[in-house]
Nucleic acid binder design. Structure first.
Lengths: 182, 182
DNA sequence: CGCCGGATTGATCAGTTTCAAGGCATGTGG
DNA sequence: CCACATGCCTTGAAACTGATCAATCCGGCG
């Protein structure tokens, strides 16, 4: 969709599907900053270029808005300016919460937090349909895909969740997850 | 200075000294989100309350600006609105960089990145005068204070830096640090 | 001079990663 | 329609990094 440090010509809104935004180290290590789901805006920059790369992780449709037209509107309409600020502030809130997870939580706590986040953000059908693979979850949480898999297996063994295929998850005990989320 | 979830009545600018902003878990684990040095603005919220706590870590003077007056100015002056957005965007950039460190870097890489950050941001006197203790550095990098101390000792043993007292650090080989920063 | 908080260093431990093997579902070509 | 290839996931065992526990050490200050 776009790469790190590319000029930020457009702002994107997810209409359907899912997008990951991430940074890479030279040796291939990857940190996924956020998953963007339908309704989310991403790729908005106050500066000139994107500071994260973005890729669709399933079939996805997005709406593009020219950055220049937003800048122009913000110059005349205070509400637009306020909205742009609010979008960035919301991303910052998420980043601050995520830093706490990355820096100070155990693998199990990270996975619990991830499940609760997805449960909150994905359509409430009673079954979470994850759009991303285990490696993506690991790169989001600062874990290996094996550790993510093991954590999920443990939660299943304890009856806290049910797996129907790797990507369909039923939360059976949200309160227990919240407790481990600390 | 202020606590997590307190109403955000003021915005702060550091005039001298240093401030840490952080989040706490119920069991006392702490993640420091950023250190704020002279010239930095902190405590600016698009929402109603602070999402981080803030404390001075040395003798510090700050300038307070009423949030309501900024909001008012932003309503009439587009440049003020743009400036508020830019401040938040800058914090987001830092947070995104820091997530990569927290999630994907080794202890030594984190410490190297920290030293380079401080070298860049503190007055260039040839000797970095750290305002924070080892525990603060650890809570910023997602490490224990012992690991921070050991990493610094190793860097000293390799001649990459010189310690004069625990908080005065001379970088003798910045390029080497940049290499380990990946 | 002696105290005290912060820092260093050492030894051991635990959690996560790494390396490796195998399983399960999906899709494709014979 | 089945056999097999492929990608993703799970599971196991061993190795390693960083945490924990514990004992000094150092420097500033009363």
């Amino acid at each position: 969709m776009f790469g790190e440090d590319e000029p930020a010509e457009y702002v994107y809104e997810v209409l359907s599907g899912a997008v990951r935004t991430y940074k890479l180290l030279s040796d291939g290590r990857r940190q996924i900053s956020a998953f963007h789901l339908p309704g989310d805006v991403f790729g908005l920059e106050a500066g000139l270029s994107h500071r994260l790369a973005a890729e669709a992780i399933v079939d996805t449709t997005v709406r593009l808005v020219k950055r220049s037209s937003l800048e122009k509107a913000a110059g005349t309409d205070v509400r637009v300016a306020r909205k742009l600020w609010a979008i960035t502030a919301r991303e910052l809130t998420h980043a601050e919460d995520h830093m706490l997870r990355l820096g100070r939580k155990s693998a199990m706590e990270k996975v619990a937090a991830f499940l609760l986040e997805m449960d909150r953000r994905l359509p409430a059908t009673g079954l979470i349909g994850l759009p991303m693979c285990r490696r993506d979850i690991g790169d989001y949480l600062g874990l290996t895909l094996e550790t993510v898999s093991r954590s999920l297996s443990q939660l299943q063994a304890k009856g806290i969740l049910g797996l129907s295929g790797a990507r369909q998850i039923a939360l059976r005990n949200r309160q227990h997850l919240r407790n481990m989320d600390a």
